[in-house]
Amino acid sequence: MLSSGRRRLFSALLQVQKRPCQPSRDMRLVQFQTPHLEEPHLGLESGIGGGVVDLNTFDPTLPKTMMQFLEQGETSLSVARRALATQLPILPRSQVTFLAPVTRPDKVVCVGMNYADHCKEQNVRVPKEPIIFSKFSSSIVGPYDEIILPPESEEVDWEVELAVIIGKKGKHIKATDAMAHVAGFTVAHDVSARDWQMRRNGKQWLLGKTFDTFCPLGPALVTRDSIADPHNLKICCRVNGEEVQSSNTNQMVFKTEDLIAWVSQFVTLYPGDVILTGTPPGVGVFRKPPVFLKKGDEVQCEIEDIGVIINRVV
């Protein structure tokens, strides 16, 4: 039997779902757990809001973590393609606990001020080069996990973002070659403690961005070839059902290719690395008066063709 919290979650999922649940030809890779599994498995989400096909049951030789799956490259992807083309049992969504599509990556790279309309909201110039900061990978939680308000902050804010997941190792990657290094895309929530980001610790952004549970991801890693144009997707955030952010990824100042080329000048990118590509306008800190998350709030972050993550604040 579902808990009251899980019932509310699945009710919210049905409300935001834009099309009926049906098998999908898009490759939507997930990490999941059920009460009958001793450890997490890899799966295929059968469409936005749909159930899950267990890839490890389909082929027991497949790794059971997304990191290992991505490291194997085409070997694992070919198995997933075969599963996608096969009629397989689908586990109902109500029986599955979704984990973040990637856990414990080598790095989580974040990009600030990367939406033209977000820059306009703050009355600042569009950056001439990407503004890079980071989160620790320990901040990552699943697409429906709770966000914990830290007692150290009173100004916790929301930020919906498109996340890029790296599939192939590279350094000094040319922009023209960058998409070959992308495994796919997912939805991210860059939860931000504005007091720590903007006023504390020398105004460095790291601590304000990396409290535990400050990086919900999911629900699926949608592979690169399943997204027609990642830079033309509707993106929005709702708090307690009210739309607070609404834009399109075409507002990104630096696109995926540019970000990969820029970041890989400084660090080697590894399979599983996550790049959060920035947020559109509508965050709480720039509202008049400012609005911040509080206990009991529910945040929905949604990106067209990728899905929605729903996180309750506790």
Rank of each mutant, 00 (worst) to 15 (best):
M1Y: 03
R6D: 05
R8M: 06
S11R: 14
A12I: 14
D26L: 09
P35W: 06
G43I: 06
S46Y: 03
L55Y: 12
L70A: 10
E71G: 00
T75Q: 10
L77A: 07
V79M: 05
C110A: 13
G112R: 01
N114K: 09
D117H: 09
C119V: 04
K120F: 03
K120T: 10
K120M: 08
V124K: 05
E129P: 00
P130R: 04
F133G: 08
S138D: 13
S139D: 05
G142T: 15
G142K: 14
P143W: 15
E146T: 15
V160H: 00
V164L: 11
G167W: 05
G170A: 08
T176S: 14
V182D: 01
S226K: 06
C237M: 09
E243N: 01
Q245V: 13
S247C: 06
M252N: 04
F254D: 08
T256S: 10
L259H: 02
V263H: 03
Q265M: 03
F266S: 07
I275M: 11
T277G: 02
G282W: 01
F286R: 14
P290E: 15
V299R: 02
C301S: 12
E304W: 13
E304V: 10
V308A: 13
I309G: 07
I309S: 09
I310E: 03
